[in-house]
Each structure stands twice: as C-alpha cells, then as structure tokens.
Design a protein around this nucleic acid. Structure first.
Lengths: 189, 189
DNA sequence: ATGTAATCGAACAACACGTTCGACACCGTT
DNA sequence: AACGGTGTCGAACGTGTTGTTCGATTACAT
C-alpha cells in the first residue's frame, strides 16, 4: 500500500479516536475529522465511503490485532486452563492496561458501546472455537449457546466496569473477579 | 395534560417505535417520524427539543412503568427470594413475553442497545436498593459494586439472548437459566 | 526521469435540522 | 353558547452536513 495512503489512514484513525473520546459519535462531523486529521475532504471519502465504514475498519484494526496476537500465541489452546498466568483473559486485560492502540480511550467515554459490541462478537467466536477443540458439548444446566454468550458477555461487562472505574485493579485481580463471577470451577476445567 | 397533547405524544411514540424496528436510529429523520405519525413539524418540536429527548422519554415511559409495577407490587421486597414464582426476574421476563408497550419490537432489532443500556441502569438501582434493605455488604469474593453490576449485566444479556433467539424458552425456563448463570445459591439467599 | 496514483480544496446539489409565523381547531370553563 | 387559552398545522426560511466532482498539485514506485 502506498505510503501516502497509510499515512492518511493513520491520521484519520487518530483524529477520529481523539474525537470519540471527547464527544458523542453522532455529533462528530466529517468536517471535524478532516480538520483534525488535516486531510482533504475528497481524500476522506476516497478512504471511507461513510463514517460507519470508518468505525468498522477501526474495529477491525483494533480487535483483529488483539485476537490474532492471542491465537498465534501457541500456549493458549484451552482458554479455561485455570493456570491464571496463561489465561487468555489475563492476556487481554494486560493488553487493555497497556492501552495498546489507544483502545482505552475508546472503551471509556460514551461511545464504548460501539466497540464493546464488536469485541463481544470476537470473543464469542474465540470461545466457541476453544469449545470445539475441547469437545465441550454443553452442561446439563446451561445450553452451550447460552453459556458461550454468558461467558463473553460477562467478560465484556467486566471490562466495562473495570474501565469505568479507572483500572483500579491489577490485571491479575480483575481476572480473578471475572473467573469468580462466572464461577469457573463449578462448570468445567 | 391536554387530550390533544396526549394524542400527538402517543402517535409520535408509536411511529418512532415502528421505525426503530425497521431501520437504524441514525437513519430515521424527523421527517420520517412526523410523516408516519401524521403530525405537523412544529408540533413535533413542541414536544421534543430533539430526537435524543424523544428516546429518553420513550425509555422512561417504558421502564418507569415496568419498574414501578415491580416496586409497587408489595411482594417483592427481596429480589433473590428464590421462590421463583415470586421472583422479580420472572416477573420482568413475563412482562417482556407479553410485549407490554411493544417493548419487544424495541429490544429486537439493531437499536436494542438504546434501551438495554437504560434498562441495565434501572436494574442496578433496583438491585442496590434491595441490597440495602437486606443489609448486604459484599462477599469475600466479590466487591459489592462489581457484584451488582454483574447481576444487572447478566440479566440484561440474558434478555438480549432470549429475544435474539425468539423467546423459545418459557419465562420460567429463562429465569432458571439466569439464576443458574449467576450461580445464585453460591452467593447468597 | 517518468508514468501513475494520491491528495488537495473549492464548489455544488441534496438533504436534514430546528425555528418562525399566521391561521385554524380544539379544549376546559364560565 | 361564547370565551380565552392553548395545541396543531404547514409553509417557508437560514444553517449546517453530506457526499460528489474536477482540475491542479504533489508524492510515490521503479
């Protein structure tokens, strides 16, 4: 990809991210973005047909990276290994704490719904894949689909709570809260 | 309140609700609403300064009614009574299944986030109030604030899952799934 | 050095917003 | 039945946003 393209793309992402942490996404105009990014109007539309696509691409950039770095990391074959230091969940919490890609700015603020929803979907796929590997077929108590949704949703809501409360807990602590909340031991390994 | 006012308010709510179940809230214009509601432009703005206020008022109309009907219903002093037939949660699930106020149309569709968020906040207050009554101060495992958030979030996500899957379970069944998910017995009465 | 491709910025039409105003219809009251 | 008050109507208006166009300029890859 052309260097110019990468640069403008970056600048638009950056400007948009900053704006998102300041005001409601619906109040952000293309004018705002291109001014902050210092980019021509036509250029913006050459990259993104509309603001929704910008959001979509931003989501992909954020989470594909996060999830990929998890999957390619060979030691995470089973999400629920309960060896906490290796847990994929701890891993993700640490990513957050580092504020990789300025993801914290996006998850705090009023627009977090925009990303948490996407995040949840990615998580669900990840968990599902893990379940297939370990040939989990559901418990007597909870049907599989419900359980997967519950695990992902609880994780996302834990993240939301953590971020809203300014990351007071360490990644290890918040991981422990999460695992306790889903009552890991009660369900399976 | 003047009968005319009530009527237009109703018609706007109704039109907006129908539109919400059809397309994204951001794509709904005031023009769409007043056309469907068959109401003058100036009239709309006499009632709602902006679309956001319309959403806010709609939320209040929906959930204040639901929550009020729960609170004024004397037999719900303790949310977690575990006598399932009296559970506030079962009660709410039944409300949903009845599609009171067309709430189902709002919770399915792409705009559910708009209402689930509000719903969650109301739930949190309700749970918190209940905790105060029963003088719950948190467990050794989970701090109170986290636990309350977890309970409300899990309920809302259960509702979301239920609605997304077309209410296949009975209110009793879905209540049971919820109570199992939060592992009621493990935490407290 | 050259052809290609991205960027710029101004201008444009289309549309949505929120307001104003005069005219009319309906309401509750007397 | 008549009244004043108030809600509604609908057209018109200024403003701001959107997404597109186009010619000129600049940076890129080779």
């Amino acid at each position: 990809m052309d260097r110019r393209q990468r640069k403008t793309r970056e600048r638009i992402f950056k400007a948009f991210t900053e704006l998102l942490s300041q005001k409601d996404v619906n109040k952000i105009t293309v004018g705002d973005i291109i001014e902050k990014a210092d980019v021509g109007r036509a250029t913006f539309y050459a990259h993104f047909p509309t603001k929704d696509f910008l959001i979509k691409d931003l989501n992909e950039e954020l989470f594909c990276h996060v999830f990929d770095s998890v999957e390619s990391d060979g030691c995470h074959k089973h999400i629920f290994k309960c060896e906490e230091t290796r847990s994929i969940y701890l891993h993700l919490f640490k990513h957050l704490q580092n504020n990789d890609n300025g993801i914290l700015d996006l998850l705090s603020g009023e627009n977090n719904e925009l990303f948490l929803r996407y995040f949840k979907e990615g998580l669900k796929k990840l968990i599902e894949k893990d379940f297939e590997k370990s040939e989990y077929t559901g418990s007597e108590e909870l049907p599989k689909a419900f359980f997967i949704n519950h695990l992902a949703a609880t994780y996302v809501e834990t993240v939301r709570w953590w971020v809203d409360n300014n990351l007071k807990e360490t990644p290890e602590e918040i991981t422990h809260l999460y695992l306790t909340a889903i009552n890991l031991k009660g369900h399976r390994v």
